Computed example of a mutant assay.
Amino acid sequence: MNIKQVRKDTPGAGEVIHFNNAGASLPTKFVNNAIKKWLDEEEMTGGYEMESKYESEIMGLYAEIAKLIHCSKDEIAITDNASTAFSKALYAIPFKAEDEIITSEIEYSSNYLNYLKLKKDKGIKLTLIPTDEEGPVDVEALKKAINKKTKLIAITHMPTSSGAIAPVKEIGKIAKQNNIIYMVDTCQSIGHYPTFVDEIQCDFLNGTSRKYLRGPRGLGFLYARRSIYEKLDPYMLEAMGAEWNGRDNYDLNYTSKMFECFEKPVGFMMGLKAAIHYANELTIEHIWTRIDELASYARERWSRIKGVQLHDGNGKELSGIITLTLKDQSPQKVQELLSKHGINSSLCKPFTSYTDMKNKGLASSNRLSLHYYNTLEEIERVADKLQNIR
């Protein structure tokens, strides 16, 4: 990977040290150029006319996502964010009282809140699988938890609150063997780590534009395996998801379009297309290799600083997301002081991943999330500031 060229393609890389990639990454110049080009022409042409004129270019976004995750482009739906994608898939599953959802203790709040809502509204059972020394999901405990009422296994691939990576391939095999619907949230891992649906064997996968894909905010996507469509009952319908063919009749569109709305921000879609094309050109394998190298260096370097404690948990592999605390300093103060020196970072709080944070006994922690355009020099700059915070 030509890091000099990558940073040249990333205007913000010369302005800030950006370690908030798990929040929103710095986009390449190609992302903003694609959005601006679309909006400038749309201003003079008209929105629907532009959409008709550039239909094949718009469909190119679906092809780029399909290439990234190894699926067919007609198994992809574009949504306004990853949470919407997740919820549309979850509520399309026809749950009944006593059906069980198995999930993990690293689950993201937006997902878990909806499990609780289903528990309240429909009487489903919710089972949490603990961590073990191998990683954030105890696979043997998961196997033992499965029973005839298990309807769904839903796993967050990478939590928002640590660098743990769930063994989603191994879990996928278990789900497949037991004929259980399998959903994987890749909000933090898409564009970060090789994540292929043919290997994971998931029925649903949701992702976001703004994080490691380096796209614009306000977009997400859902992968839904073609074979799952006829088992679903979407909680809402839109013109693309069904055909209204009689005063009292409609036919459901058994395709990924059952999850997609007619109205979408096409200009931002062009930005996302540019972002994923850039990732596909670099290849996700090379992206992960670079992130892994940087994160390994950063963990070793920062852990040697007096007072620093890492909170990434267990796992055979750790991601580019690093969480830590500094003794005798509040995470809020650490973040503020880093920011004063042009270093972007973020805070983890219990509302984002309640069980994971509570298990670690943390009220909050600092999160520094690395991407491939970061450098060893930037890691050393953070080390210097952590060593000298007063």
Score class of each variant (00 low, 15 high):
A275P: 07
M258H: 06
D203C: 04
E230S: 12
D198F: 05
N280V: 03
L213C: 07
I291T: 09
Y254H: 10
M269F: 10
G220E: 00
T283K: 15
V184C: 02
K231C: 07
L205R: 02
L205T: 01
C187V: 14
M236F: 12
P234S: 06
V197H: 01
D185T: 08
G191W: 01
K273F: 05
I200C: 00
R210N: 08
T289E: 14
V266Q: 14
K257Q: 12
C261L: 10
G271M: 00
A274I: 04
G207S: 03
R217P: 03
P234E: 00
P216Y: 10
Y182A: 03
Q188S: 06
N206D: 14
I228H: 11
G241E: 09
L213G: 07
L282C: 06
G218W: 05
D233H: 10
L282I: 14
R217D: 09
L232V: 00
F204T: 00
M269H: 05
D203P: 13
G191I: 01
I190A: 13
F196K: 15
P265W: 06
I181N: 01
D233K: 15
L222M: 00
V266G: 08
Q201V: 00
E243S: 08
K257M: 12
I291V: 13
C202M: 05
Y229Q: 13
S227I: 05
I228R: 10
G218D: 01
N206S: 14
L222A: 00
L252F: 10
K257N: 11
D233E: 09
A275C: 09
C261P: 08
T195Y: 05
E285Q: 14
I180F: 02
C261V: 14
R247A: 14
I190N: 14
R210F: 05
Q188M: 13
F262Y: 09
N245K: 06
R214G: 11
I200Y: 00
E293H: 11
L205G: 02
R210P: 06
H286K: 14
K231M: 07
F196D: 09
G215A: 12
S227H: 12
Y250M: 15
K264P: 04
L213D: 03
K231S: 11
R226G: 11
I291D: 03
K264M: 13
M269Y: 07
E281I: 12
A224G: 05
G215I: 01
N206K: 01
F221S: 07
R290E: 07
N253Y: 02
D233Y: 04
R226L: 04
E238H: 10
G218R: 06
L213S: 13
I180N: 02
F259D: 04
L232I: 01
G191D: 00
T283M: 09
E238A: 09
G271Y: 06
W244A: 06
E238N: 13
F262R: 15
S189P: 01
T255H: 12
N245R: 06
M269Q: 15
Y229C: 10
L272I: 06
N280P: 13
D233Q: 13
P194F: 05
I284G: 07
S209T: 12
E243L: 05
R214C: 11
T208C: 15
T186G: 10
A279M: 08
L213T: 13
E285P: 10
E230K: 14
W288L: 04
L282Y: 10
E293C: 07
M236Y: 08
V266I: 15
F221Y: 15
P194K: 11
L237K: 09
A239G: 05
G267F: 07
S209N: 06
N249W: 07
C261F: 11
A279C: 15
W244M: 11
D248E: 10
